[in-house]
Amino acid sequence: MSGISRRKFLTCTLVGAGATALSLKTTDAFASAKLEGYPDSMGVLVDLGRCVGCRSCEAACNREQHLPAPAQSFDDPSVFDQTFHNGQKRRTDEQAYTVVNRYEPTATDQPVYRKSQCNHCNEPACLTSCFVNAYTKTSEGAVIYNPNICVGCRNCMIACPFNMPAYSYSSATNPVIKKCIFCYDTRLKNGLPPACVEICPQQVMTFGHRKELIEIAHERIKARPDRYIDHLYGENEVGGTSWMYLAPAPFEEVGFDTTMNNEPIISNVKDFLGTVPMVLAIWPALFTGFHLLATRKHDIEQHGDDHSAHKEEEKKS
């Protein structure tokens, strides 16, 4: 009789050991939280006040990334009047990794144009949510991805606080995530700025080391406090982003989500990730213990083997 109980116990112990082995992999999540981006990470400072809405950046992106032809010419300003569901403005999709939208904030006489693309977070939510680890944050600061292993779960799209990753829903055989990759393959890794930065006639975008861009941005605010909202969007939002923004009008009036926390997205998930190894470690012993307690009486009645059941309990503790 005792042998049977022991076997049960051993089975549970094995389950526990296996579970603990499984738990080891979750520890990576904690390491990533301490990261503050790569020290030499590059970035782009976008000064919305300078943008005139010429959409050259959209055109350059289209050419650089070999994207399909747009529905309208890139010099057609009528796209600024397009609205979608519930007044949504244009957004990035599988055919456009960057789009410029027009806003009319109350604080300025002129419309404000805002270019959006992947912000290349220091701690990308897309990267941490990807179960095949398709995303990489390069030392240059770009968040790139490997379309060859993308399963298409679209969890990164759920996770991205900026709604940037798009999906090629139209493809039946090879749909993958599509987003701005900071022109990593063709430019960034070769020491060149992204195509949109290079083409911009107004130098709305300043390309440089992220650390220096932060200094430059604050100097601009200091030098022209009348021209800028005193905030560098992306310096701290969701743990900091490589692309950062200065605006002449309140950020929420020019298409930014200002309710964002400074904590990276992954910190919201930490509470759960922390419980995983605990459940894996505690549950086997706890429920085996429950089992032994709950069934001990039967064992005694059935087999009259008080001693063995007692021994099992001792082992458990």
Binding site: G191, V197, F207, G208, R220
Partner: peptide
């Protein structure tokens, strides 16, 4: 203004005042 060489020059020259100078096209 955004070539690797130019960025290197401006980054290394920490005392430079006009670090945030427009490039030619922007100017």
């Amino acid at each position: 203004p955004f070539s690797a060489d130019h960025l290197k020059t401006t980054s290394e020259d920490r005392k430079r005042y006009h670090r945030d100078l427009l490039g030619l096209k922007g100017a």
